[in-house]
Design a protein around this nucleic acid. Sequence first.
DNA 1: CGTGATGTTGTTTACCAAGG
DNA 2: CCTTGGTAAACAACATCACG
Length: 346
Amino acid sequence: MFRLFKKSKPVKIRSYHESTKYGVAAKDLKELLKKGCSTLKLSFSGAHVCLYSDGTEVTEEFFQTLPDHTELVLLCRDQTWSGVVFDISQLLNTDRHANDLIEAAKGLLSDEQSPKRRKILTDLLLNMEDRSELESREEDENWFKGVDARFKTKSAYMKFNCESRIRGYMKDVENTTKTIQKPRVRANFLKASKRLAEMLKTARYNGCYFDRTEKKPDRLCTQEGWFTCQGSFDQDMCKSLHSINPYGSRESRIVFSTWNLDHRIEKKRTIIPALLEALENHKATDINLNYFYCQLFTRENLKLVHIVCHKKGAHNLLCDAKMIFGQASNQNKGSRKAEKRKRSLK
DNA sequence: CGTGATGTTGTTTACCAAGG
DNA sequence: CCTTGGTAAACAACATCACG
C-alpha cells in the first residue's frame, strides 16, 4: 500500500520585512509556500524559502531533512536573505533588548584581540549606551566630567558652547579693526563692528543652534539632540550621512567638538574684506549691515559639518553685491528681495 | 623640486574681570 | 558669592609663497 499521507513538518516562518514569526506545518515545500504566502499575504508566484540563520535556499529535498521548528524566511521573487547580515531592523529596534545587547557586546569586547572587531564593538556600545534622555547634572554625572561646574543641564552647556564659537567669529571682526590704517575707514569699521556686536548680543549669540530645548526652526538638532551633517560647503547634502548626538554620552560630547560650523562664504577670506571694501567707498549708512550679520553669524551662511566634510581650502564664493548696500533707503526693496530669495531656495 | 614659514580655516582650555 | 563674558594660548589641517 502507498503512503497516502506524509507527516507534516512544523516550521517557523517570517517575511523579509516583518520580524513576526508564524508557526506553519506542511508536508512538502509546495504546501509550505502556499500556506506561508497566505498567512503572510504574499504573492505565490516567485516565492521561495530560505534558512533564517544563514540564508541557505530551501529545496524540496532539503525541506524534508529540516529539524522541526526550524526558522525560515519566506521571500518574494528577487528577494534574497543574507544570514550574516541578520535582522538588522531588529538590532535597531533596540529598546527591548538593549541591555542584553550591551552586556553581550561588553562580554565580547573584554577578551577581543582584533583591533577591527574592538572598534566595531566599541562603536556599537557608544551608540547603544545612549543617555540622551537625561538632562541634568545629577542624572548623568559622567556626561559632565570636565565641564565647568556652573553648567547644570546639558542643554545649557551646549548652548554656551555654540555661543562661544560664534563669539569667536565676532572677535575676528573686531580684530581686523586694528589692522586698518586710514583713520576714516577705521572709524567707520569700528562703528559697523560695534553695531554687529550689538545685534549679535541681542540674538544671544545664536546659542539656540545647539540647544535642543529651543523651538523647531531655531535648533539645528532634533528634540533628542541628534545633529546631522549638512554636507561640505559645495554639496547640497552629506553623502556619508554623518550624524551625532552630543547629548548621548561624554564621548559623543567630546567628539562633537570636532564638528564645525563652516562659513560657506568664508569669513576672513571673503566677508570681512567685502565689508571693508564697502566701507572704503561708501557711507556707513548705505551699507546693509543686516546682510553682513546674516553671513557672519547665522545659519543662512553657516553649515554644521562633520570634520571630514569641512573643506579648509578656498571656497571661492562671493558676497551678493546686490545685498551689500541699501539698508536704510532701500530697506523695503532689500528685505523683499531677501524674502524672495529665501522662498526660491526652498 | 621639496621644505619651512606664515596665515587661513576652525576648535578647546584656563584664566581674569565686571556685575547681579 | 556665582554668573557672565572676554581673552590668550594651544592645537590641527590646509594654502601659499619664498628660498635653496
